[in-house]
């Protein structure tokens, strides 16, 4: 993948308030306490990994942020504004993009369309209905932007293919391309490297390091080498609770983490329990 000089740019106008702040969040599914008084924050420009065994509540945390599940109690603030109660489809405009553990590609749309649809910018209904020049212009801009992003991810050649005909590794890049199309300020990735080859994992790590200059990234992932390579901070969840939080080195050395998680065999990710 082509490297660009973006790593050197400094973030402009960085604010001291966190991008995402979760306070005492509790989510219950019937008798299951999926999240138990979880508090965490993600600051601007940070790459934060959320790790923990299967069923720890990682996906549920993302679902609560995105409005797919209703927390029993607690608070989620995004850039200082309360986020709870916001309909999922409004998040994209607020600058939050998320990939699903189950990918969520639309099989009936080409790769190109799958990516274009990720943009917050789209021609209006009337302008599309009448095929006004403005709709053609916006569509052309979106197509060229999608093409750039696909190119940056090394999959421009698949633009006109349909996603389910493609190798899994390509599908995972398409879904990241869709999220990037929205130019988010907070990117939530749910298990982005599960099922990828070692080479693909390295490339994705490189990409995330580039992205950090433009957005903060929260990654749920099992793959520890990947997590250690990309994160500024790691948050460890276990049975719905935050049991540790710190730099990759601190987490590696934390005895509690070792017994709860790292000491065990790394569980293989299962098919999703997304939204």
């Amino acid at each position: 993948m082509e490297k660009r000089g973006e790593g050197k740019e400094e973030r402009v106008g960085e604010l001291s308030r966190p991008t995402l702040e979760v306070v005492d969040l509790t989510v219950r599914f019937g008798g299951i306490l999926a999240l138990d008084q979880v508090s965490l924050r993600i600051d601007a420009g940070e790459v934060v990994a959320i790790i923990g065994p299967n069923g720890a509540g990682k996906t549920t945390l993302f679902n609560a942020v995105c409005g797919f599940v209703r927390p029993g109690s607690g608070r989620i603030d995004y850039r200082g504004e309360p986020l709870l109660g916001t309909a999922p489809h409004r998040l994209a405009r607020l600058g939050i993009a998320r990939t699903l553990q189950s990918l969520g590609l639309w099989p009936g749309l080409s790769v190109q369309e799958n990516v274009v649809a990720g943009s917050n910018r789209r021609p209006g209904f009337v302008s599309s209905l009448l095929a006004l020049p403005s709709s053609d212009r916006i569509e052309a801009e979106l197509a060229s932007k999608a093409h750039d992003i696909l190119g940056r991810l090394g999959i421009a050649g698949y633009a006109s293919a349909y996603p389910l005909t493609l190798p899994y590794g390509v599908q995972k890049r398409v879904i990241i391309a869709r999220a990037l199309m929205a130019e988010p300020s907070l990117l939530l990735l749910d298990e982005p490297v599960s099922g990828l080859s070692a080479e693909d994992i390295d490339e994705l790590a490189g990409l995330i390091k580039q992205l950090r200059t433009r957005m903060c990234v929260a990654v749920v992932e099992h793959h520890l080498d990947f997590v250690m390579a990309i994160s500024d901070r790691i948050i460890v969840l276990n049975v719905g609770r935050v049991i540790a939080s710190g730099t990759p080195k601190e987490i590696r050395d934390d005895p509690q983490v070792a017994t709860a998680y790292l000491g065990e065999d790394v569980p293989t990710p299962e098919a999703s329990s997304d939204a």
């Binding site: 994209a92 969520g104 099989p107 649809a117 709709s135 569509e139 929205a182």
Partner: peptide, 24 residues
Amino acid sequence: RSAPGRAFKAVRDNEAAAALAGID
């Protein structure tokens, strides 16, 4: 040909993913 057509199909194929892409 345009955004509404994509939105129709996106909602048909995966509602959660459509919502995350900003589609009501």
